[in-house]
Design a protein around this nucleic acid. Sequence first.
DNA 1: GGTTAGGATTGG
Length: 809
Amino acid sequence: MSLISGGMEAGLHDCFDYILPLGTVIPCVAGAFQEHQVWFWTPEEADTINATDRCFTCWSQHKATMPVQLLKIIKGKYEPPLPSHLQREDLKHLHAGLDHTNKYFQGVVILSYPLTKLGDGTDFFKIVLQDNSCARIDSINILIYGKMADDCAKVIRNGDTCIVAGFKLAKSPTAREDGRHGCHLEVSEEAGSAIYIYAQPSTTTASETASASVAPKYVYTPLDHLKDGTIVNLYGIVKFFKPPYVSKGTDYCSVVTLVDQSNVKLTCTLFNGNLDSLPKIYKIGDIVRFHRIKIREYNGQMQGITSAGFASLTFDGTVGAPVVPRTSTKLSGVRPMLFFDLTCQLVGKAQVDGSSFLLKVWDGTKCPYPTWRVPIEARDLEGEKVLLHRLRNLTVDILVYDNHVQLAKSLKIGSFLRIYSIHTKQASAENEDVSHVEFHLHGGTCYGRGIGVLPESHPDVKELKTFLESVELADSQSMDSMSSLELDSTSNNIADLESQRCQQLSVTVLTDHQDLSNTVLKTIRNSRAPQQYRIRAKLRTFKPQKLYQSIKLHCSKCNSLQEVPDGDTFDLILQGSAVTPPNPELHSTSWYESVMWTTQDQKQRKITIHFVKHDEMLLYPEDTLLMIEGGTSKEIWKLTRRFKCVIPVRSTKNDLELLDLSAPFLLQGKVKYYGCKQCSTPKPIKNLSSLAAEPRPSWEPTEIAQVLGIEPLQYVFIMKFTLVDGTGALNAYLFDYEKFFQIPASEILSNNFLQQKMQMTMNTLCPPGRKLDDLPWLECFIKSYNITDGKKQQVYYQIFDTTVAEDVV
DNA sequence: GGTTAGGATTGG
């Protein structure tokens, strides 16, 4: 494999490690281009874990780096190079509230303080770094904690250049006195920080010798090499965990079972009085690094237990596929008599009795079953009254018991929680006709039962927040519009008001033609086409009921509609095209650079990737377009996560060409772009070079399609609405790219949230199980048109210039 | 420094 550039190679490594055979040696950017052997999970080893691809030497997907490293600068380049995901940040861009996750700060050490110990015994080392900005404020304090402080104190000398990554930015309490930057940077091994030191040339020899001897060389022991009574460093995938809970002693306890490439399990019992010192594991499949864990034999098996100086780091282990089948994380998917994990927000809490405590939570979805309400006095319920009332139909009561009560009490209203192994129990009270579903978090910690607080920065929380905000907004707007009704109403019953609103307000609105008056359906049916009408009607039923079937591909040139090809079709075409061997004469031309290798499994596939060059540079994978020959759809999807565009191609004698147009001609993000077979006239692939020659190619799918002679197909929602009013019924078609549902049809197939949003919208437009009288009104604009089928002429109707009301979306 | 727990659902 030739080395193209850091970013590209890292991308390839991430995307293809699983197709390289065990033991292959490849250059790996996270290991600073040291040559690493690749090891994998095989499905047999994985047990409940669906992680099949991981480099066990460097764990590069997680960009784990040695906490303190010594760098050299050779011919103006760092050696070893910095991890490619890091970008330099100037002093003037260091502000609280900005995301500095993948940023580093570089400066020269102008001052260092003696190594000291904090009150709790933690080592502490402070240095001052100066940048070369010549600005009024050109220096910043760096506070280094724990083992890293000790390591740095031994190595760092004034005049050294220091690179700090993975830092936390905090307000500097001494800024007024020392005149330095208003913030300081905090770093520690526990926070996953890294410090790279480039010793000043004049002192290189001395400093390098010193550094080399103290720079921590962590050795990670495979789990099949553990010996009783030793203290070791470990890496592993989390196979089981109990979120930290209060032990019967003085500490929090967390039990974590790991597995690694040796296929040996290790259960670790971790104690610490400080919750933050225990690993922040949120799901099975996460990856942890433990430093200084003690190994003991217990019941004939090795066991890990915290020892002095224990430190841990957790990496998100998301590979793509869902990990554990037993979990469901949304209330809308709850089924009775099961255990599930729930990611949610805390809205209210209350003490019920000595051994049980109530949590009122929501996740924006609605539980499909009637749920129980734990009877408590309103004054005992802590939480925002208005919100509790507003969300009353979306919150559920979870009763937690015994050992979980203490933790539950300490939870802050509004915080985001993951509650593990909630028991759903179906029950019915004497005075109830239908049974309800109860949610219990029983006492004890078996099966990982417990409560975890997710940080605001957790990707699942970010996603949930966005979703909750949209639901809450819709809800508050409907409350606003109700309150105006309330003024005119003599009734104080909220349910009455809701049903009144249902009767009066429309769940859809017109985006134009508001001046037009309504026409009843009977009149429309008795009129000639083509014409346009404003109507007010109810949605009695619609097709397809399975909403994903409403997505089709439309060619705006020939007006044809077709089904979206399924994944199998793509795989078959890829397999077919993989039969054509790559043509080496087409490799690495003036406008693309090619890499080829052979998989060493039985299939011996040849995979070729052609990176389209831009400006003679190949620095940013996320902006790069590549073409691939011989890959599988799984590999192609992996590439789309890291690179801007992927075009599947095959070799001919003289040029590369697109595959059959039943396969996507382009993949971008999670979207497959297809071309129309009738209307496309594929042009030579080298036409792409004209786009690449632009200063900043945007790689817009439409532009790519145009230069390749492809007539692009567009994703559309096609539905049949059966509308009724007092005078009659009428079938109208909905043909919508985005406007009606305010959801892009192109994105819905790959986005669960959008699918849920669409389902909720349809449930509002046409609530299942309601009588006609109770259905909401829709305000629509429709046009009639004639279709001649042979001799027969028929009138059709289509909805347009209509959108779902804001408080419904 | 000692202890805690040492994975293995269903009760209120």
